[in-house]
Structure formats: C-alpha cells, structure tokens
Design a protein around this nucleic acid. Structure first.
Lengths: 189, 189, 189, 189
DNA sequence: AATGAATGAGGCTTCATTCAT
DNA sequence: TATGAATGAAGCCTCATTCAT
C-alpha cells in the first residue's frame, strides 16, 4: 500500500545500521528496488526522509504503549504496564533502538530544537496523565507534575536505550525491573 | 610547546560543536592558524586526529579522578570522591561531555570494537580497585568484582552523560547524589 | 550513442599523451564537455576508466586482426596476414601504440597480475589456432603449441611496440618483414 | 664514502620496485635513514635524483661491457663478448632491468628528448667502434655504420629488456644466443 | 650536513540534488 | 510515477618543495 511508509520501513533499517551520514539516498533506493531520483518524489530531501522515518518508528512505539496503558484501570498498574511495554517494544524493535542510541538528539527535549516534539510530547503525555491520575486519586505524592514527568521520562529513556548496549538479556531485565519498582516506591504513598 | 596537544585542544571544541563529520580538517587548521596539510604532519588522517583528541580528553578525565581518589584513605570515601569528581569534571568540561553525547560508541566496551579500550580500562580499573579494597577490608559485600565493576561503570557513564541532556543544574546534581548514595548502600555491609 | 565508449575514445588520446598519472579525470571530463562527477556515473574510478579504455583499444586491435585472418584460407597466409594486419593497425593507431609503450605491464602475461588477460588471451588464441591448423594440415613442424605460441606472441608484441620507438618508417617495415619471414621459415616444413 | 652515490643505490631499488611516480622522496630518505629535506641537499629535485640514479646504473652497465670488450682482440670475439656481457650484467642487476622495463623512454634515442644521451651514446660508441674495426679489418660487410649501429643497438636493447619479462632462464639464454649468432652471420663476410 | 615544520597545489571521490523525459 | 543523466560543492589526502635553524 502506502509506498511512502514502505520506504520509511526500509530506511529505518539502513539508518539504524549505517547511521544518518553514511546512509545514502541511493542505499535506500536500492533497498526499495527503485532509483535515487524517485525517492525525491516522495520526500523533500534526505533530512525529510530521516525525520519521517524516525517519527514513524516513534509513533509505533508510543501507540503500542498507549494501547497497553489504556487497557489498565489501576494507576499503579498503568505505570508498570507503561514501563514494561516500553521495554518490551524496544527489545523487539532493534532498529529503532539502534537509531535511538546513535542519535541521542532525538530526545533532546529543549523546545527550540526538538525535531520530534510532537511524538515525544505524546509519549510524555502518557506518563504525565498517569501521574496526574495518581495524584488525583490520592495514591501518589503531590509532586510537581511537570518536573517529575520530565525527570522520569528522561531517566527512563536513557535507561531503556543504554540498557541494550551491554545487555546479556536476563541481567538487563532484572536491572530494569528493579528500577521500575524503585520509581513506583518513590511515587507511591 | 607540544603542538600535537594544542591541535587536539582546538579540535576538541570543534568536534564537540560540529560533530565528527561536519568538522573538517580545514576547520581545525584554521583554528590553529596553520594549513590543512600541516595537520597531516601531526596526524595520520582525520580519524587519527579524532581518536587522539578524544583519548586525550578521556585521559584528562581519568587522571583527574584518579588523583582525587588517591588522596582519600577510607574506601567509602574513595567511592564517593570518585563519583563526585567524575561528575564535577564533566560539568566543567562541556566539550568532552558533548562529544560523549554525540558519539555513544566511545563507551561501547565490547572488546572487539572499543577504540579507546586503553583509557576506558584505566577508568574501570580505578573503580575495580576500590571495590576490591572494600572487600578486602571487609567493608563491602563479597560481590563478583568483575561483573559488578562493569555494571556500575556502565550505569555511571550513562548516567553522567545523559544527566546533562536536560540538566537544569540543581535537579541533576540531586539526582546524581541520590544515585551515588544508592550505590554506596548497595555495596556497603 | 554509447557515451561510455565515447568517453573511452577521448580518454585514450589523453592517456596516450599524458600517461596515466598526469591525465586527470578533469582532463577527460573537459574533453567530453561534461563535469568530473559525471564521469563517475560511467566509471567506478580512474583505474576503471583506464582499464576499460585500454581493454577497448586492445579489443579493436584483436578484432581487426581476427577479421583479416578469417578471410584467408591458407595457413601460411593466415600467419602472414596476422602479422601484417597487427603491424598495420598499430601504425594507424598511434594512441594505442603509445599507451602500449608507456605501460609495458599491459602485456605481462603472468596469470596472477594480468589486468587484460581476457583480451590478451583472445589475441593469443588467434595465433595458437593458426599454429594448430598448420600442424594438423602437416605444413608446420610438430612443435609444442602452447610454448611456441607464447614465445612468438611475446616476441611479436615486443617487436611491434618497440619498433616504433625509433621508427623511420621504411627501416622498421623492412625489419619487420624480415622478422616475419624468419618466423615463417622457422615454422614451415 | 660518497653519500650521493649511496643515495642513488638505495633509490635504484625503490624506483625499480615502485616506479618513478609512486616512489616518494620520503621513501628514499627512509631507506637511507635520513630525512626528506636532507635529500634536497644532494639533489636538486626528484627528477634530478631519478636521472642521476639511472645514469649511474647505466654507466655501471656500460663500463662493465667496455671492460670486457677491451680484453678481446679479435673483432668477432669483441662483438660476442659485448653481447654476452650485456646479457649477463642485466641478468645480475634486476633493479636496472626493471627500471628499463618500466621506463622505455630511457632508450628513446631521439636527440631532442634523450635524458641519458651521454650514457647511451657511450654504449653505442662501443658497438660502433667494433663495427668500424670489423670493416677496417675487412672482416665485416661495408655497411652504413651509423644506421646499422643504431639498428643493432635498438634491437639488442629491446631484446635484452623484454627477454626477462617472461623468462624461464634457459629458454631466454638460448633465444639470446641464437639472436647473437644471427647478427654475427649477418655482419660477417 | 641535517632536521622539523610548514606550505600549496593538485587530484580523487562522494553525494545530495535537480532536470528533462 | 519513474528514470537516466548531469551537476556542484565539498572534503580528504598526497607530495614535492622550501625555509629557518
């Protein structure tokens, strides 16, 4: 179907493997069995291709998490599920993971330069609304929502990404679990 | 005096600001007030310049930490000092920090591809000998030294680096302090 | 039509005149009225351009000889015609001649490093099949075909090429004629 | 002793192995255990170094031949000895041989561009005086001395050089012997 | 005699991008 | 939609050569 998306899917793997600079438009075209110039029919330029590719991958991640969260009622469970689904998703999608490793700027939340604000904001929104709900239900400490959200979001992203650098599987999973429980304890009354 | 070092110092800032790819040999030469070709008198090629630049910066970091650690007797204090000096050093040396952010591969400790093994190993050695001393003096749990060292090193590096991505100063510092205390509690009997 | 060939034709003259090293891709591009980079659309790199250029020229030579040989029935005539057409062709194509002079490695028949084995083998095949036919028809001595072929080929190539170094026309032609007759007498029963 | 000569000796091997273009001044300096710049104390530039190196090697060749010729009385023997000593010398000095193969221009006897006229003329002089002596003693045909000399010189040079390209030792030697006898018969009454 | 340091010119190659078809 | 062909800008690197010491 949507060829634009198809291109992004192929590009994702290449960007993950070779990085932005070393991935050429021709690489992408070759992978698609089309020509360089034809890529320009679908995307304005290389930057555009990259951003749409990454944005698409981030959306998939966020949607997967949002869906899992929506299925839970209890706010603590929501928090746990959010954390686990995130972890699980990245484990399964190594291309996205690699890109996140290689381009740390993706999560630079400084408003002025965030190329993926839209998606990132969406992800943070999930976390934020969980915290808000927890506070409203009087199950979480009355923390500064915005700051705590940003803090947790940044720790959690960095943890997720870096977790895989060394990664022997079980160790990482355990490490992650403990981190999550720590956060839960820190929040819960 | 040592012009090689002088070049590295200038290069550090440029690599930090523009990244490896966008920094040209000419940029470095201009910054030094010399010609492109003269850079090649001191370095084999761009890669060589980059690696020596980074290695130099990492050495400075490691030495600063080593020195601080050596000045302490108590093993718990050594651990704390190591953590704080590391933090402090990176805070003060934003070029190194930025490079570390931009090139996460610098800390990929997989033996096969680590371009800075020598320096990294030196840094890990500091941590390792503290843990060993703590165990010998019966003040630390009898943990698996190698594994724990690698684990702590990797967490600590990722933390240090990522801490600055958002960074509003006080928040980060507090966050870091708590992390350190956590580790101390985890180790101490 | 075939622009690749067109480029080779221009390149041949330049390589002949300036030699491999001194001929720049830009020279070739200029001669074609196109840009440097466009040359790279047709050839992988300078080496590739050179090799295809030389191979093309050698093929032209070989084909011209093969055609002349095929038109004769008598095996002795075939041999003579082969020799004279070769001579004639080189006389008329001074670019190829010059390149052959400048790059003696073109005829280094050591299997391991011959860049033009395919073409060279084709040329030797012509000679070889003449000798074989001569022996089968009982008009040539029963010599060791492979060795004699290689020997004659190497003498003949060296003669052809070097003949032109001094070359005052008539002298060379006479010299050549005598050499040919010598070979004929040596082979013929 | 003479360091200039020492440099030439080292340069000879390098020029033979890598060719003029690919041999850098630094290669030569390294081989001598000195620095690039110091080479310029002894030679005007790379071209100068090359020419003096080749000229030196050619002189050695010519002197060796001249010496052998001088030791003979009989003019036919002189001719034979000249040929054999030449062959022998080149067989033993593969560097010179290789340079002669790689730079055919060395024997381009066109007065206008011969960079080694002096040496070449010296070599031809040996041959010429033998022929003159043979004629005076009425043992050689009364040929056109200048032309015959040039012709024989050029054939003989080309033969010597190319003989080694394929070369399986005995074959080459036999081939050469026969060629020499042919020339002798051609000259002798 | 010798060196370290510097330079300039030149050449190869890559690649994003455009354009006519 | 899709392609082949073309371009320009940019960057890396080599090397002969020079100069001050």
């Amino acid at each position: 179907m949507n060829k634009e998306q198809e291109i992004c899917n192929h590009a994702l793997g290449l960007f993950a493997h070779y990085g932005y600079r070393k991935t050429t438009i021709e690489d992408v075209a070759d992978a698609m069995g089309m020509t360089k110039s034809n890529i320009y029919f679908y995307f304005k330029n290389k930057q555009d291709l990259y951003e749409k590719t990454v944005a698409g991958a981030l959306s998939g991640w966020r949607d997967s998490v949002a869906e899992a969260v929506a299925a839970e009622q209890d706010v603590v469970e929501k928090f746990r599920v959010m954390a686990y689904r995130s972890f699980e998703y990245l484990r399964a999608h190594s291309d996205l993971r690699t890109i996140l490793e290689k381009d740390p700027g993706i999560f630079t939340l400084t408003p002025s330069e965030d190329r993926f604000r839209e998606v990132n904001m969406g992800a943070m929104e999930i976390l934020k609304s969980i915290i808000e709900q927890g506070i409203k239900e009087n199950r979480f400490h009355r923390v500064d929502v915005q700051h705590v959200t940003e803090f947790l979001f940044s720790v959690y992203i960095m943890f997720l990404i870096r977790a895989y650098v060394k990664s022997e599987g079980s160790t990482v999973a355990t490490m992650y679990e403990e981190g999550v429980e720590l956060a839960v304890r820190g929040l819960r009354k």
